[in-house]
Design a protein around this nucleic acid. Sequence first.
DNA 1: AATAAGAATGAGAAGCTTTTTCATTTATAT
DNA 2: ATATAAATGAAAAAGCTTCTCATTCTTATT
Lengths: 138, 138
Amino acid sequence: MESQDLRKAGLKVTLPRVKILEILESGKTRHFSAEDVYKQLLEAGEEIGLATVYRVLTQFETAGLVTRHHFDTGHSVFEMNLGNHHDHIVCVRCGRVDEFIDETIEKLQHEISEKAGYKMTDHCLYIYGVCQDCQKSE
Amino acid sequence: MESQDLRKAGLKVTLPRVKILEILESGKTRHFSAEDVYKQLLEAGEEIGLATVYRVLTQFETAGLVTRHHFDTGHSVFEMNLGNHHDHIVCVRCGRVDEFIDETIEKLQHEISEKAGYKMTDHCLYIYGVCQDCQKSE
DNA sequence: AATAAGAATGAGAAGCTTTTTCATTTATAT
DNA sequence: ATATAAATGAAAAAGCTTCTCATTCTTATT
Ligand SMILES: [Mn+2]
Ligand SMILES: [Mn+2]
Ligand SMILES: [Zn+2]
Ligand SMILES: [Zn+2]
């Protein structure tokens, strides 16, 4: 139930927030730009402004409900935060996004931070490449 | 000699390109936004337009002279390409940037790409954290 | 050294993503 | 039901980057 998630996050239960949460949880894909979300709202006949989409996504991020990524596409990408940290491999041809996690890399990152004298707050690893499908249709 | 580098890259030797190359090579810092470069040009009394700075930096990137990074600051950051791939650790407080390379991580990235069926073209690892200085002045 | 041809530049306009403003609407507590 | 504060939509504006186009400069050729 989306309303519970919102209340738990300290956010009032409003139609835009519920609808956006539904889309993010819909599961067709996991990674959305603000524009992606906005388009899906339009398709669903919801009259929710783009400014609200940006506002709500940022609030969700602050509340820890979603994670924001900076793929090198020029815009932010959001996904539900399921508590499972992972990294991304992005197809530079078709935009497909796959996820992975490597414990060895995770551990090494901590060591590197310490060695450099940093207190690590976050990290992200992006691998860019050409996915299997795009290699075929070359 | 900057003119040689430019000619080798197939670019005509123009004052903006020489001056920008000088700044990038100056060595005070290694990571510059377009705005950073533009400001240094102004300070040096050069009347070079911001549009030219962007144009030239992109040309340098295409020519392989510089590398472009997408820290999550909302703007591109450029540095001379010295042929030594490395990753970055960025202070979220003061913007300081340190560099590192970890061969184990590099190797693991290749393995991950293969496993996922991707032909890797590029990768970047950003660690965000609070640097030593910023931890003190808390 | 002068010339011609094409490339590069600067200024400003415009593009794109994102944020802000503000009048209006809505959620929530009473 | 009412009051209060928060949220929303529309439009404007901000911030970074690219584009347009008239002018200037580089380079190759006389
Ligand atoms: Mn993901
Ligand atoms: Mn670097
Ligand atoms: Zn692909
Ligand atoms: Zn710092």
